[in-house]
């Protein structure tokens, strides 16, 4: 564990809490892509099946349980409790276009052909693109609530900090996981446009609106 990874995990946690609080406080999931949240729940479920097989540390296990529980809580809020506020008309990204390539890619490029490893690989590839339905929704409506943009920023910053952590680990431990690194870089690049607008607009107190 190094400071970059810890900061990354904290950003990840903050993102999830911000999203849950936003939905809970406003009693609405307007502007939130339920499809991205389904994909994230799938990411955590397939990655953290190792909770039953490998123990890394108490920190790891607790965080995994939090990520799993919060992702299903988010789905419950969107699809059950505040279903009436769910903006399904704008949440039209076809997730099979992400799921099928991720399944194929995880069968082609993996560290090992064991069920748990294949699920882990799939979860890494899927996480890289899971935000696309949300970004698609923002681009469709042309705007995002400020709190939603904070959520997206924290979620994007998390993987960007992991990249710094991987560079650090490469030099200090000679540790490198090619699959996670390449997927993590792609994941971060997908947020690049958003980061730019967030920094130039939201941090200056303006609304998050895409240029017309």
């Amino acid at each position: 564990m190094n400071i970059f990874r810890l900061l990354g995990d904290i950003c990840h946690l903050v993102a999830i809490i911000v999203l849950l609080l936003k939905i809970w406080k406003t009693r609405s999931c307007a502007g939130i892509s339920g499809k991205s949240q389904i994909l994230f729940a799938l990411v955590y479920t397939t990655r953290y099946v190792d909770l039953f097989f490998t123990y890394v540390s108490l920190y790891n296990s607790v965080m995994k349980v939090i990520f799993l529980a919060s992702s299903y809580a988010t789905l419950y809020l969107i699809y059950v409790k505040f279903k009436a506020t769910y903006d399904f008309n704008h949440d039209t990204f076809r997730i099979e276009f992400l799921l099928i390539p991720c399944v194929i890619l995880s069968l082609l490029i993996t560290h090992d052909y064991s069920p748990v490893e294949l699920l882990w690989t799939f979860s890494i590839y899927l996480e890289a693109v899971a935000i696309l339905p949300q970004l698609f929704m923002v681009s469709k409506t042309g705007e995002a609530e400020t709190i939603t943009s904070h959520y997206l920023f924290a979620l994007g910053a998390y993987r960007a900090l992991y990249i710094v952590n991987w560079i650090y680990r490469y030099y200090t431990e000679s540790f490198i996981d090619g699959i996670a690194v390449v997927a993590g870089i792609i994941q971060t690049i997908l947020y690049a446009d958003f980061f730019y607008l967030y920094i130039t607009k939201v941090l200056k107190g303006k609304d998050f609106k895409l240029p017309a």
Partner: peptide
């Protein structure tokens, strides 16, 4: 496919 990597990250 390369070495098996221990997944100690989240």
């Amino acid at each position: 496919m390369g070495d098996i990597v221990a997944h100690d990250e989240l």
